[in-house]
Design a protein around this nucleic acid. Sequence first.
DNA 1: GCTATAATGCAAATCATTCGCATTTAGTAT
DNA 2: ATACTAAATGCGAATGATTTGCATTATAGC
Lengths: 121, 121
Amino acid sequence: MRITKHRQEILDVLDHSEEALSASAIHASLPHINLATIYRNLESFVEAGTITKLNLGGEEAQYEIQDEPHHHAICNECNKVIHFTVDDEKLVKEFALPGFLITNLEVTLRGTCATHKTKTK
Amino acid sequence: MRITKHRQEILDVLDHSEEALSASAIHASLPHINLATIYRNLESFVEAGTITKLNLGGEEAQYEIQDEPHHHAICNECNKVIHFTVDDEKLVKEFALPGFLITNLEVTLRGTCATHKTKTK
DNA sequence: GCTATAATGCAAATCATTCGCATTTAGTAT
DNA sequence: ATACTAAATGCGAATGATTTGCATTATAGC
């Protein structure tokens, strides 16, 4: 994969972001890059394993740099995504299914984040 | 929510299906019901908690009857979805995040199902 | 049965994502 | 440095899933 200025910029934006970003969010930060190009590059990065594509529910997919493997907790109120890690090895053992070879483990929690906890009925 | 013939048919199809179905799959089984109506009803059922909407990766969302809570293992080769259960209570304790109130727990495994295990490189 | 309201069909509108194709550019060989 | 080839871009149009507006019809209560 070639190292183009665009690709560097896209990775840069993702790298400096605390949260996962959608293609359009990236495009908002880099309006000079065509949206189709952003999609194409994101896809390339996902294939290369550089970033991860998240389908957390609704409309747009979110993308994030693949640092260490982690999981996601999503606030029902504000859709904020919090990262957390657990002992994946251990979980994989717990989840052992007959005949199923686990290559990837994804835990998604839904709930209420600290900021909105009090507001919950 | 009114009990209409259409709604009963849709639930029936989901009830008799081993796997989660997409809106278009349901429409294929019930071609006399308008696709928009199917979408509207699926949404109502989700709100009512009767069914669950799954966003397992790609294109279409999948819907399934909400029996007992369970999780999903998806085969990378054939996209078959296998259900499994674990001790959710226990996991919630393990995952405890400071300031985050967990209301829902979703585990998604990716890997290779029994049928395709041998074919993996 | 009569009525008010929710459900349905249909077609058009949205929205995210993808594609085709002509043009430009990175990486490489000359 | 210069020329070349394949990959990367931009742009606009195409797709595909899902939603919406609105006129029509059916359901639940009276």
